[in-house]
């Protein structure tokens, strides 16, 4: 039992072969992309079947400045997430300086900031939904509102899943006796997922809010 315990802590793979956890995550993310491909296809189909009139009526209700702010926060959270990965790659779990000195932050501080920014994004989405519903654009108003809520809602669920992943990751590193390769691998694959969700949002934002 001791040997297997050491196994689980010493790391997922030696440095000279591809990390199976990371490869698996990448393959899974590429299949996630096809899930979003279906959502995009649904959006475009509904648009071409309904004609431009329904779209013109409904897209005027979108609050573009607010969603731009929300998008900016999500994109910046990818940057903070990457700084967390850099910290994880040098096996630095906690900060070495004061809490405000972000140059000395460890993975925990960067990921906590990323979590807060992601939570801000989800909160902003809920705020936006509440405003739209109060203005009369609910899930079943018309074809536009249905595809709008489905595409952005599924993305929001993915962001929420990412937030849960960050919490589990932080809990795991907190429990681990030593911050090693296996912890760093978890940090890296969660960051892959986070970047992916971020890129999908840029595509969705461009489609729904900018091109309309």
């Amino acid at each position: 039992m001791t040997s297997t315990l050491e196994h689980s802590e010493s790391g997922t793979a030696p440095a000279n072969r591809p990390n199976l956890v990371a490869v698996g995550t990448i393959v899974w993310l590429s299949s996630e992309l096809m899930f979003f491909a279906a959502l995009f296809a649904m959006y475009f189909t509904a648009r071409s079947v309904q004609g431009p009139k329904v779209w013109l009526e409904s897209t005027g209700m979108l609050n573009i400045p607010f969603s731009t702010l929300n998008t900016t926060v999500l994109v910046l959270s990818s940057v903070t997430c990457q700084f967390g990965v850099f910290a994880a790659e040098r096996f630095q779990l906690r900060r070495t300086g004061s809490a405000l000195d972000f140059r000395k932050w460890g993975m925990t501080e960067w990921f906590a900031l990323t979590f807060l920014m992601g939570a801000f994004f989800v909160g902003g989405q809920i705020f936006e939904y509440a405003n739209l519903v109060s203005e009369g654009l609910s899930f079943s108003t018309n074809a536009y509102s249905s595809v709008f809520y489905l595409t952005t809602g599924f993305h929001g669920l993915h962001v929420t899943g990412g937030l849960v992943a960050f919490l589990i990751l932080l809990a795991r590193t907190f429990k681990a006796r030593r911050f090693g390769h296996s912890q760093a691998t978890s940090a890296i694959v969660v960051s892959y997922y986070w970047h992916f969700v971020d890129i999908v949002w840029i595509g969705l934002f461009a489609t729904i809010y900018l091109i309309k």
């Binding site: 992309l33 096809m34 979003f36 491909a37 995009f40 296809a41 475009f44 189909t45 648009r47 071409s48």
Partner: peptide
């Protein structure tokens, strides 16, 4: 557009 979306994302 649907085919273009599917192929582009493939």
């Amino acid at each position: 557009v649907v085919g273009i979306t599917a192929l582009a994302l493939s």
